[in-house]
Structures are given as C-alpha cells and as structure tokens.
Amino acid sequence: MKEEKHIFSMLVDNVPGVLSRVVGLFSGRDFNIDSLCVAETLDPEVSRITIVSRADAPIVEQIEKQLNKLVNVRKIRDLTGPKAVKREMALICVKAKAQHRAEILRIVDIFRCKVVDVGPGHYILEVTGDEGKLAALLNLLKPMGIKKIARTGPIALFREPN
C-alpha cells in the first residue's frame, strides 16, 4: 500500500511526560515521525502537538486510534489535505559572498522572507510558508551555499467554515 504524508494535530493534557508518551508510542509501534511541534494553547492545561508522519492507510488508522487511546490525549485530527492551512518556519544561514548578496536579497524579497542577522560572509533568513515554498526557496539558495538550517516542521489548523 502507498505511503503518504499525514499531518496529525492533537490536543493533549499539558502534564509532564505527555510528549514522551506520544513519541514513545511512535517508536514502540514502529510508526514514523517526520517532524514534531509542541506548544501550550491558550488554555494552560492543554498543549497542541503536531506530527507529520509517512504511512499507508491501515497504519494511519492505527496511529490515530493508538494516539486517541493515550489517557492524556484529548482530541486528534488528521489535517492532511486542503481543508487545513499548513505553515512551517525556517531559519536559514546562507553564505553571502559579495557577488551573491544582492541576489539573495532579491530572493528574500520575492519569497517575503526576513533577514534577521547579517555578517560579512552570511545572512540568516527567516521564512514561513508551506512545504512547496520552503522547498523552492532552498533550491534557489543552495547554489550560494547553505551553512545551517533550523526548521520547525509544519503546524496546521483546519480552515473555519465560511
């Protein structure tokens, strides 16, 4: 069966060990984690965990059910597909030689990134966007030389009904 990328978003009790329960479930059952994001929600008793995983349909069903079974997981949704907005943030440290500096800034402009740190040999760029945008940006920056990168992994929310 075909493996597809799925983005799971769950609300969990904001208590010690909850992340370990979630992550332990993935490793213990040989489910895959591509990326993971976690932070408190407006309610300090609840956190939101967003996990991107590659799996075929029966495993996706198991992942959802198994997560739901954890006592500390309140709600889980599969946000794969166009019904949800997805964004990821990255900090990219790119080499900035004299002959490339203007070109990088043009790219920054086109991709609506921000330059958050400048040095004689580098820029650090801040960018948010969906998977495609980040991939396109990285493609353009690669020839200049990417020194370091930190990505958050996607977060997502269902669009509100109109």
């Binding site: 010690p16 060990g17 370990s20 329960r21 332990g24 479930l25 213990g28 006592v71 500390n72």
Partner: peptide
C-alpha cells in the same frame, strides 16, 4: 514511570 510507560495503561509520578 519512564520504564513502564509502554507497558501500562497509564502511570503517574
């Protein structure tokens, strides 16, 4: 608690 997380229904410290 860490050791028994995968083999308990739930656990507490």
């Amino acid at each position: 608690v860490g050791i028994t997380r995968p083999c308990t229904k739930h656990n507490y410290l």
